[in-house]
Design a protein around this nucleic acid. Structure first.
Lengths: 183, 183
DNA sequence: GTCAGATGAGACATCATTGTCGCACGCGAG
DNA sequence: CTCGCGTGCGACAATGATGTCTCATCTGAC
């Protein structure tokens, strides 16, 4: 039986995010397979990275679809984005930290599209008066990535309970840590 | 004249954070020196990494000192932390993304101390009633790291103006992105 | 000018990783 | 049982990074 390719890529993303210098052997071991088998599925390290990118981007795209980013209240939509994206935080972390792997300026097109979709949600929220307008959509997008990734790492390291992570991420992003509402 | 060791380490942190697989030669070139000279200053890659850790931790410690984390209003103290830490975001990013470089569980002692200092500030703010109590200090600490690092990257990539980064980071962390104050 | 110290350039052996094979094993389908 | 497929294991050469060394050059102090 052929092993689960997606699961393999998922663990590869985790390993590479945590320790980007991991060898192919490390990755194979982490996935519970031999280096030969890893090479049978991916021609080489480059091919593996590309596949990681592709799958990660597809997952994020699907997560944004599932979150229905342009339906209903912008606040609720953002909550859905956090909830839908968090399961794929391993890929998100990989994409965020490793997207500098390739040539200068040569940004993956799929990535800019994800950026655009999320940025659009923030702009919509601002236009509807739900979001502050003194924080730029570009920054909010970066912050969203960073918080989701950080949340996943914190869960992995046992610093945050898994059942709380989605709520804490969304709450901090939406309401900040200050208790009172005044500016 | 001996070159500026701290500046060298600073660029090394940037390079390694952006592209963790960089070779010693890459690092040397980025710093504008030859590989031989790099080796004269640091016995090897390991030694370089250790030095990076040490300097990064010292800088963060100094930044927390300068921020006077246990003086005055917790909100203001947090703003000072963001402002003082941001200049050393390169090191922070390195520490956050690469702290898995060494053995399992073997966390650098200095790092846990930094964690503790920041966690203490969040706890103080919660006790004083300034901060929400439904977000754990551990999570807030992780979020602070993530946001400062993300902010620095965003500036580097030109997605956020340098003059706005401190304000945007602190504002998002403190107040969140929602416009109205109600929960 | 002279000297000491630091640097850059290049050569070199060594080591780890990589990518490719061949071969044997196990397991499910027929 | 037998076959086919996927896998693990080990060996192998090739490649790139690493660490060390030598030598020439430069710069600042004296």
């Amino acid at each position: 039986m052929s092993l689960d390719r997606e699961e393999l890529l998922s663990t590869a993303a985790d390993v590479l995010t945590r320790r980007p210098t991991s060898s192919m052997d490390d990755i194979a071991k982490a996935a519970g397979i031999s280096r030969a088998t890893l090479h049978r599925h991916f021609a080489g390290r480059d091919a593996l990275i590309r596949a990681l990118e592709q799958l990660g981007l597809r997952r994020l795209d699907a997560a944004l679809d599932a979150a229905r980013t342009d339906e209903g209240d912008a606040v609720d939509a953002l909550r859905r984005v956090v909830a839908e994206t968090e399961p794929h935080a391993g890929f998100l972390g990989f994409l965020v930290t490793q997207n500098q792997l390739f040539e200068p300026g040569e940004q993956h097109e799929g990535w800019t599209r994800i950026d655009e979709r999320i940025g659009a949600l923030f702009r919509r929220g601002q236009q509807e008066g739900a979001f502050r307008i003194d924080l730029t959509p570009a920054w909010l997008t970066e912050a969203l990535y960073a918080l989701i990734t950080a949340s996943a790492w914190a869960v992995q390291d046992g610093r945050v309970a898994a059942r709380d992570s989605t709520r804490m991420t969304a709450e901090l992003l939406l309401g900040g840590l200050r208790r009172s509402g005044e500016r």
